[in-house]
Design a protein around this nucleic acid. Sequence first.
DNA 1: CCATGAACCTGGTCGC
DNA 2: TGCGACCAGGTTCATG
Length: 271
Amino acid sequence: MPELPEVETVVLSIRDQLVGQKFTNIDVRWPKVLFNFSKQDFINNIVQRNITNVHRRAKFIVISFAEEILAIHLRMTGKLYFSNGKTDEKHISAIIRLDNGQQLVFEDTRKFGRFYYYPSQDFLDEKLGIEPLGDAFTAAWLIENLHCKKRMIKALLLDQRLIAGLGNIYVDECLWQSGIHPETKSNKIPKKNISTLRDSIRNTLELSITARGTTVVNFSYLNGKSGKFSSQLHVFGKDGQPCAICATEIKKKRVAGRGTHFCPSCQKKRY
DNA sequence: CCATGAACCTGGTCGC
DNA sequence: TGCGACCAGGTTCATG
């Protein structure tokens, strides 16, 4: 479900209540939610350990202890929130209890979400690419890394090993903003457009975080509250509607295995 | 190396 | 109202 801005929003919403606390127990209702460890591992290694930090890396929510981390990936429909009482929702995969009486609930309709336990964050970093909001993500970096490859730009932007955090919504939006057809081979894109793409990625992610993310349809991941960035989308979900720039009808087609929205006029194919 | 499709799951929507 | 087909903010694996 969520991309970088939505995960960041979740992190911001739970961080203050977690840092300095300790977990006391876990109630696992969908066993596969624990990807590479068991409930007993959780009890032995995580329970009663001080939570030193909560942050985002790519689309992972990272809960840090001394060295070790508990990483949570929401995939398509995962929600992570605090709940005081009722935990009788239909699709709860796990509930983690804290020593202050609070309960951290992981609700996940489609059950794709996973918890990972690693000795350090290096285990995540070695598989993940650059953070698009970090200082190293410059136009020069993007030009170099797109021009040395010749894959479709949409597939490349979705590849977490290159840039970590983008997903289907923001890729479509950013390609539209920078006038790049989603099927363009990455080595054929002019530097000027790549520079625009870089700025577009930055601006879009930052604006979306400010708006507390994007909520599609009625789906809310924030305990009932929904993100407000939906109103600033230009192409995602807009097929059949006129392009905001040229009024040409927005089209939708399958690219890199994903539903892809674009303006056939603003985003000409380049080979 | 690259593109594609299936798999993992459940539920909403659309057409008949 | 009911039913099947298709779609969904993600990632990984097998296949050609």
